[in-house]
Design a protein around this nucleic acid. Structure first.
Length: 593
RNA sequence: GCCCCGGUAGCUCAGGGGACAGAGCAACGGCCUUCUAAGCCGUGGGUCGCAGGUUCGAUUCCUGCCCGGGGUGCCA
């Protein structure tokens, strides 16, 4: 969003310096200075080839006489500007459509983007790490759509492999034909319990093995797994699964369904939706075919022992095995296949994977192999890495049970929100107490996770990490609720075209309008940098500006009907942007709190 | 060894060549007969890991080092 007086300034400077065009940007003036917006002339120095101070002088002299500028103050190389009320409100908040349209990318930059995220394993329930992934995936999907991209969000469920067989073995031994229904346990937790049982038994057997065979004392666990009875049993089960043993497949499918039903509840609670869910059990063999074709074309090579590899020396990634000597697939082989499938099914301009930063190398290799295989679209594949979440006690580990469970976290947050809500509505519970608590609790969790830059590794302290006061989701929701309350009480329809915007002019009103003007740019930046924190920071600023305005400027008791109308219109505009911003993070606004 | 990420207030995190380094939490002090106090205002708190370099200007860019984490599989 660019003020007319800045466009005029650009034209003036171009003329004076015989330039074709010039981009002058504005930013908010720091609080300790007089002025609302500021122009940093250091930025103009290289193109104008004059000293920043000289430029500031010129800018100040020009703006001083501009009708839209009340005051232009030159401080060193900065020009701080007090904008005339009428143009300020006219150009920032008067036109809601324009304000929202500012978030859209130019048509030619709008793309068709396939995003893969979540990618859970069907052997245990989801934990806080998955919640961050899900929240990021949803938010990036939503942000991209808001700037004009077409987004295809997909999930790839890891429902096969040794870890799945481990839960199955445990169930065979200790399940007693129990089911989620018979025990009342949510399906993913039910299966997860058996996964933990397997780990415990395996640990016990490993200790036993080391006692009986001192020579294994220093061998890593991985080398000994197949030497334990239960480890071998899981391996045998995997072979049986791959050979299509009907009994094994039947048990596998039953447990698969239990977990997926559990996941569906968790996803529904978070508002996660996918256009397509891929299952590794269905896609894992596609990669092998692709490898065989690559081999025929001479793009891949074969070791003397039969293992197939891709030579990535020129990218300094060494030789990557893509088929083991026994002909089975490795991790990257499966991704080769599913990537191709996704590309063929949806023909996106680009594919993005939201996966933890520990897998950066995996994706470099994956993309390099696809380039090697000659797929031109391989240049449009990107990995969006995000940081893991630690507890104050260290890493979260499913195997050791040191995880923050997603469902439990959501429950706790909703409970907390419920008691906070009841505190504030003494006597009578609101009708929608349940729903409201859920929305507030989820807002707190999501906002907390999204307000850290995705690449930042987070420390999550269960005792104090999620709050409802200060820089939180509920704080922003609260601003929305207060505005809604005012608009309800006003009980009048404001004729937008008749609003006298120039009756506004207090510092709080001007600040609020200027914050509104930053909406579009913020969204575009968040999309460009895939950074949800840009939006959380923006929403907090906007909500803070509103809170100050709320304190200083009475809406319902404004000194004149015109002022009241203008303030109502301003409030409505702020609520729209808060709502849009929250929605871009897939957080729901509230009417009342 | 090599590669990547991080080190900013007691804690959790922003900022990422430009004006005296920010916010929230925690601590302390004010503000509810006035549109919802999940709020507002104020105080204290920092050698931006260390050392060099580039620059008119470095917390920001470059180099080296220290500390923490991750990766470097015919594991996923």
């Amino acid at each position: 969003m660019k003020f007319s007086f800045i466009q005029d300034l650009e034209a003036h400077l171009c003329k004076e310096h015989a330039l074709e065009n010039l981009d002058v940007t504005w930013e908010l003036c720091p609080q300790d200075y007089e002025g609302e917006v500021t122009i940093n002339c250091f930025r103009l120095a290289p193109t104008l080839r004059k000293s920043p101070e000289q430029i500031a002088q010129t800018v100040q002299e020009y703006l001083e006489q501009h009708p839209d500028v009340e005051q232009a103050i030159c401080v060193k190389a900065f020009v701080n500007i007090v904008i005339t009320a009428a143009p300020l409100f006219q150009e920032t908040v008067a036109d809601e459509t324009q304000l929202l349209r500012d978030a859209k990318l130019p048509q030619e930059q709008q793309q068709r983007i396939l995003i893969e995220f979540s990618a859970p394993n069907t052997n245990k329930p989801q934990h806080l790490g998955h919640v961050r992934n899900n929240a990021l995936g949803q938010a990036i999907t939503s942000i991209f759509r808001r700037v004009g991209h077409t987004v295809i969000p997909v999930n790839l469920v890891n429902d096969r492999g040794i870890h799945i067989c481990q839960s199955m073995i445990a169930y065979q031994r200790w399940g007693n034909a129990a089911t989620p229904e018979s025990t009342g346990r949510k399906g993913d937790h039910f299966v997860g319990d058996f996964y933990v049982m397997f780990q415990q038994e395996q640990k016990r057997q490993l200790e036993e093995l080391r006692e009986q065979h001192p020579e294994f004392k220093d061998s890593p666990d991985e080398d000994l797994l197949l030497k334990t009875e239960i480890g071998q049993a899981a391996q045998n089960l995997l072979v049986a699964w791959e050979q299509g043993d009907p009994d094994v497949l039947r048990q596998w499918w039953t447990m698969h369904e239990w977990v997926m039903q559990g996941f569906e509840q968790t996803y529904a609670r978070m508002g996660v939706e996918f256009d397509k869910v891929y299952f590794e059990s269905e896609t894992f063999h596609y990669g092998r075919q692709l490898v065989h074709e690559g081999l025929e074309k001479g793009l891949l090579e074969e070791h003397s022992d039969g293992a197939v590899f891709c030579n990535l020396e020129d990218e300094k990634l060494g030789h990557k095995i893509v088929l083991r000597k026994d002909g089975t697939s490795v991790y990257v082989t499966q991704d080769l296949g599913t990537t191709l499938i996704k590309q063929q099914e949806y023909e996106p301009d680009q594919q993005i994977w939201i996966v933890g930063d520990e897998q950066k190398h995996h994706f470099r290799v994956l993309f390099a192999i696809l380039r090697k295989l000659g797929y031109t679209w391989a240049d449009q594949l990107t990995h969006m890495p995000y940081g893991m979440i630690d507890l104050p006690s260290g890493k979260m580990k499913s195997r050791e049970g040191t995880v923050v469970d997603a469902d439990e976290l959501f429950d706790e947050m909703a409970d907390l929100a419920r008691s906070e809500t009841r505190k504030r509505t003494e006597g009578e519970d609101p009708e929608d107490l349940d729903q409201r608590s859920e929305m507030i609790g989820m807002a707190a969790v999501k906002f907390m996770l999204l307000s850290a830059k995705p690449t930042t590794r987070l420390t999550f302290d269960p005792d104090k990490a999620v709050r409802f006061e200060g820089d939180t989701g509920p704080y922003v929701q609260y601003a929305c609720a207060r505005i809604s309350s005012i608009l309800r009480k006003a009980d009048e329809t404001v004729d937008e075209s008749a609003v006298c915007w120039n009756t506004l002019g207090t510092p709080e009103e001007k600040d609020l309008a200027l914050q509104c003007a930053l909406y579009g740019e913020t969204l575009r930046r968040a999309a460009r940098e895939q950074d949800t924190a840009a939006i959380t920071a923006y929403l907090l600023n906007l909500a803070k500006s509103f809170s100050r305005f709320y304190r200083e400027c009475s809406v319902l008791n404004a000194s004149s009907p015109e002022l009241r109308q203008a303030r109502l219109a301003l409030c409505a505009r702020v609520r729209t942007l808060l709502t849009e911003g929250l929605s871009s993070l897939t957080i729901e606004p509230l009417e009342s709190m």
